[in-house]
C-alpha cells in the first residue's frame, strides 16, 4: 500500500506542474536499525513518481561510501534535493507531516531556481561569504 493516498497524489502532481528543471532526490538509508527507514525510502520514491521531472536515487549509508562522502551525509535517513547542482539542501528523517510540504517547496524552488527571497534579504545574504551551516529542528506534527 502506498504512503501517499490517491487523492493526494493528484493534488501533488498538480503542484509539481510548475517545475522547470529536472530535480533529483538522492536518498541515503540503511537496512537495519532505522526506525522509519523503510517508510522514508518509500515516501521519496512515491514522490519521485509524481512528476516526469523528478527522479530518485537510493544509496546505502554503510556501503556507498563515495556517495556518502560526496554529499557529506552523516546520519540517515537523509534526502538531498538537487538539480544539476547541489545547493546544500538536506532532509534528515522522514519528510512527512508538515515537512512533506517543505519537501515539495524545496523541490519546486530548486526546479525553478527561485529562492523567493526579498531583495533586502538577498542583499543581506550576500554578506555570507564563509561556509554557514543551518540545522533546523522540526517535528512531523
Amino acid at each position: 500500500m502506498g504512503l501517499i493516498r490517491d487523492e493526494d497524489a493528484i493534488e501533488i502532481r498538480k503542484r509539481l506542474e510548475v517545475m522547470v528543471n529536472p530535480v533529483k532526490l538522492i536518498h541515503f538509508t540503511q537496512e537495519l536499525n532505522l526506525e522509519y527507514g523503510v517508510e522514508a525510502k518509500q515516501l521519496v520514491q512515491e514522490v519521485a513518481a509524481l512528476s516526469d521531472k523528478l527522479s530518485a536515487e537510493t544509496y546505502n549509508f554503510l556501503l556507498d561510501k563515495e556517495k556518502v562522502a560526496e554529499y557529506g551525509v552523516d546520519k540517515v535517513p537523509a534526502t538531498v534535493v538537487r538539480d544539476g547542482k547541489d545547493y546544500g539542501i538536506r532532509f534528515y528523517g522522514i519528510p512527512a507531516g508538515y515537512e512533506f510540504a517543505t519537501l515539495l517547496d524545496a523541490i519546486i524552488s530548486v526546479s525553478r531556481g527561485e529562492s523567493g527571497l526579498g531583495e533586502q534579504s538577498k542583499e543581506k545574504l550576500a554578506k555570507v561569504t564563509q561556509p554557514l551551516h543551518l540545522e533546523v529542528f522540526v517535528t512531523p506534527t
Binding site: G88, I89, F91, Y92, G93, L132, L134, F137, V138, T139
Partner: peptide
C-alpha cells in the same frame, strides 16, 4: 556558502 539541514 550556505547548507541547510531539516532534521526530524
Amino acid at each position: 556558502n550556505i547548507r541547510a539541514d531539516c532534521i526530524e
